[in-house]
Computed example of a mutant assay.
Amino acid sequence: MVAVETAFAVLILAAVGAFVISVAGVMFAQTQCQVTADEVARQLARGDTAAVQRARADAPAGASVVTREESGATVAEVRLEARLGPVVWPIRAQARVLAER
C-alpha cells in the first residue's frame, strides 16, 4: 500500500514541478519581450536604425515587433504566443519613449 501512495506522490510532484518550470519559462519570455520593446523604442527614438535591427533580431523566437509614432513618442509593441502544453498564453509588452530631437 505504501508503494502505491509513494508512486502517486511522485507523479503529483513531477506534475507540479513541470507546471512550475513551464510558468517560469513564460515569465522569462515576458521579460525578454519587455526588454526587446524597450530597446526597439529607445533606438527608434534616437534614430539608430542599425541598433533597431539588432534589437529586433534579439526578440524571442516567434515574436512580432510592431512600431508606431504617437504624439511625439515612439511606441514599440512585442507580441508572442507562449504554449503551455495545449494552453496558449498570449504575451504582450509595450514601451513608449519620447522622440529625441
Rank of each mutant, 00 (worst) to 15 (best):
M1L: 11
M1E: 11
M1Y: 11
V2E: 10
A3G: 07
V4A: 15
V4P: 03
E5W: 13
T6H: 04
A9P: 11
A9V: 12
L11A: 03
L11M: 06
I12E: 13
I12Y: 09
L13A: 15
A14R: 04
A15I: 10
V16H: 09
V20F: 10
V20K: 09
I21D: 00
I21V: 08
S22Y: 10
A24C: 09
V26Y: 00
F28T: 12
A29S: 12
Q30M: 10
Q32V: 09
Q32R: 12
C33H: 02
Q34I: 07
V35C: 03
V35L: 12
T36W: 08
D38A: 06
D38I: 06
E39F: 08
E39L: 14
A41Q: 02
A41E: 03
A41W: 00
A45G: 14
R46S: 10
G47S: 04
G47H: 00
D48N: 15
T49R: 15
T49Q: 14
T49Y: 13
V52A: 09
V52E: 02
V52W: 11
Q53G: 06
A55F: 09
R56W: 05
A57C: 00
A57H: 03
A59K: 04
A61C: 01
G62L: 05
A63F: 11
A63Q: 00
V65F: 06
V66T: 05
V66C: 03
E69S: 15
G72K: 08
G72T: 12
G72Y: 13
V75L: 12
V75G: 03
E77G: 01
E77R: 13
V78A: 07
R79S: 08
R79W: 03
E81V: 01
A82V: 02
R83E: 15
R83Y: 10
G85L: 14
G85N: 10
P86L: 11
V87S: 04
V87K: 00
V88Y: 00
V88C: 03
W89K: 07
W89D: 01
A93W: 01
A93S: 07
Q94L: 11
R96H: 05
L98S: 07
L98A: 14
A99M: 02
A99C: 05
A99R: 06
E100I: 13
E100S: 11
E100H: 04
E100M: 12
